[in-house]
Computed example of a mutant assay.
Amino acid sequence: ALTDALASGHLRGAVLDVFPAEPLPEDSPLWRNPAVVVTPHMASMATSAEIVNQVAANIARLDAGEPLRNAVDLARGY
Rank of each mutant, 00 (worst) to 15 (best):
A1T: 14
A1V: 14
L2N: 08
L2W: 11
D4H: 14
A5G: 06
A5E: 02
A5P: 10
L6M: 11
G9F: 08
G9V: 02
H10E: 11
H10P: 01
L11K: 03
G13D: 06
G13L: 08
A14T: 08
V15E: 03
L16K: 02
L16A: 06
D17S: 05
D17W: 00
A21H: 05
A21V: 13
A21I: 03
A21Q: 11
P23R: 01
P25V: 07
P25G: 14
E26G: 12
E26P: 15
E26Q: 14
D27E: 13
P29S: 07
L30G: 08
W31D: 11
N33F: 11
N33R: 14
N33V: 13
N33H: 15
P34D: 15
A35M: 00
V36F: 12
V37Y: 00
T39D: 06
T39M: 08
H41A: 15
H41G: 12
M42N: 10
S44R: 10
S44M: 13
M45G: 04
S48E: 09
A49S: 15
E50S: 08
E50Q: 15
I51N: 07
N53K: 11
N53T: 10
Q54P: 10
A56L: 10
A60S: 09
A60E: 11
R61M: 04
R61I: 02
L62Y: 13
D63C: 02
A64Q: 10
A64T: 14
G65R: 01
G65N: 05
E66I: 04
L68N: 10
R69G: 10
N70T: 02
A71F: 06
A71T: 00
A71I: 05
V72I: 15
D73C: 00
L74Q: 06
A75K: 12
R76A: 07
G77F: 00
G77C: 03
G77E: 02
Y78L: 08
Y78V: 03
Y78A: 01
